[in-house]
Nucleic acid binder design. Structure first.
Length: 480
RNA sequence: GGCGGCAUAGCCAAGUGGUAAGGCAGAGGUCUGCAAAACCUUUAUCCCCCAGUUCGAAUCUGGGUGCCGCCUCCA
């Protein structure tokens, strides 16, 4: 049973999909007006793992994530650069994919863009006007929050309370300061589309209602994003969608905590942000993933280079073990030997237990921090086994190492970790052979107790970024 | 002012009312020619404070303190 914390009910609930075996997910995407920073990336890493886990558990997942490609900020950048808004949006959508691909984030099934769904948006707005939830004012269309009984149910706000100390503009044409724009009348020089209310463009919140309803229908399963979207964005989406359809909009609302810097929210306006592309020049993408996943998705996560470096060392421990295991699985042995001893059976049990514990952790509101702890426990057991298992017969040992590699890949794959590095080096085989040669020469020196030569080789290789380890099972080398 | 969240070792961090996971860093040891990696031991009589419920609370309730976020664009 999978349980999730639902912002709507403020408690953990059992997850029951709308349709058995299928899960629908809508995640609020980005406004493409510059490169994504790691705060932006957090929900996408989170949802990538949620999706991978649901798929692992056998669900067929439909994952939709929008691009807000019409927006003041895009228009501003376009004007500043003297380019069309489409060019800006296209450029940063491309940049978005580049960064997210680097982080091994699976692509959503649909990436709807606002600019390609104007007709659907106009339909929803028109329906809201027809049903009396919206009013037209000089080419603008506003949503009238007083008309929707459930207004505030997601964010826990009460309209009356918000008016008191509200920081909202009063001097406009809205009936209530909390009313928000569904459609904005065109201003000179801005992109605009024809509508029943004249030329204009969509308001911010309406796109997600129109597009999620189009691709996922009413009452879809998961709606997610950063917790700064709870109000007003998601509150307004609910108001629009439920007023429009008369049905439940989305059933489970999941929200990420923020990434902070020195305990302050990372944000573009504060200027304290780190771009994904910049971080990836210093750290492996898996380190960033591991760092994000080492804290539960709802908790705040403080970012610094030191903390990333710590994550890198921790992940390195897991990778060391996996590399060691892979050293024995050049030839896979998938068949269980007829005869096994106690050590084999114990390791098999450890592996099965890891799978169960991992799922238990993930079932509990996608507790990746706990799931990672399971991987560390598994790692220790495998290391201990390798250290103690020299008398184990070869086929049996290889079988177990194959099992060990598989469980690492199976569980790590859910977190998007341990992807085999695509080594595009055409000289790969040559490098392998040369390394073997160098290692053989060094071994020769070691046998002759020529430590000077042996250490010289090791030191020189280290300067080239290659680590030599003399394990009890023989020398091993690795990059970095 | 309204609403919400968080406070667990040097640091990061999980924790379902039953007596504190995991990781990083540190210390000691085993292994090693020396290292590295790995393994073992060790590091919170205690979970911000106070009161309460309970046989029993880090976990529940009330009060306080501190920090953060949202209420304006924001992942």
């Amino acid at each position: 049973m999978i349980r999730v914390y639902n912002t709507l009910t403020k408690q953990k609930e059992e997850f029951v999909p709308r349709e058995p075996g299928r899960v629908s997910i809508y995640v609020c995407g980005v406004t493409p007006y510059n490169h994504p920073h790691i705060g932006n990336a957090r929900p996408f890493i989170t949802w990538d793992v949620i999706r991978r886990y649901l798929e692992y558990r056998g669900f067929e997942v439909q994952h939709v994530q929008n691009f807000t490609d019409i927006d003041d900020k895009i228009i501003n950048v376009a004007q500043k650069e003297g380019r069309k808004w489409q060019e800006i949006a296209d450029r940063y959508i491309e940049a978005y994919f580049k960064d997210m691909d680097a982080l091994h984030i699976k692509r959503a099934h649909v990436y709807p863009r606002v600019s390609e769904h104007i007709a659907e948006i106009i339909d929803v707005v028109q329906t809201l006007v027809d049903r009396g939830y919206a009013y037209v004012m000089d080419g603008d269309v506003y949503y009238e929050v007083n008309k929707f009984d459930g207004y505030g149910k997601l964010s826990g706000r009460i309209l009356e309370d918000m008016k008191a100390g509200a920081r909202v503009d009063v001097n406009d044409r809205k009936k209530n300061p909390m009313d928000f724009a569904l459609w904005k009348a065109a201003k000179p020089g801005e992109p605009s589309w024809q509508s029943p209310w004249g030329f204009g463009r969509p308001g911010w919140h309406i796109e997600c209602s129109a597009m999620s309803l189009k691709y996922l229908g009413t009452g879809f399963d998961f709606h997610g994003g950063g917790s700064d979207l709870i109000f007003p964005h998601h509150e307004n989406e609910i108001a629009q969608s439920e007023a429009c359809t008369g049905e439940c909009f989305a059933r489970y609302w999941l929200h990420n905590g923020f990434i902070t810097v020195n305990e302050e929210k990372m944000s573009k306006s504060l200027g304290n942000f780190f771009l994904v592309r910049d971080v990836l020049t210093h750290f492996d993408p898996e380190v960033l993933r591991f760092f994000v996943l080492s804290t539960h998705y709802r908790s705040p996560l403080d970012f610094s280079d030191d903390k990333l470096a710590e994550a890198s060392r921790a992940l390195g421990r897991l990778q060391n073990t996996l590399e060691a295991v892979r050293g024995y699985t050049k030839q896979r042995v998938a068949t269980r030997p007829a005869q096994t001893d106690a050590a084999t059976e114990k390791l098999e049990q450890v592996i099965d237990k890891a799978r169960v514990d991992f799922c238990t952790a993930m079932d509990d509101d996608f507790n990746t921090a706990q799931a990672i702890a399971v991987l560390f426990d598994l790692t220790r057991d495998i290391n201990t086994f390798i250290g103690n298992s020299r008398p184990v017969p070869e086929p049996e040992f290889k079988y177990l190492m194959t099992q060990a590699e598989d469980i690492f890949m199976e569980l790590g794959g859910i977190l998007g970790l341990f992807a085999k590095k695509e080594d595009h080096d055409a000289n790969l085989e040559l490098v392998e052979n040369l390394m073997q040669l160098v290692i053989n020469i060094r071994q020769q020196a070691r046998q002759n107790k020529d430590w000077t030569t042996a250490d010289l080789i090791r030191d020189c290789l280290q300067q080239m970024g290659i680590i030599i380890e003399d394990t009890p099972q023989g020398p091993r080398w690795k990059k970095k």
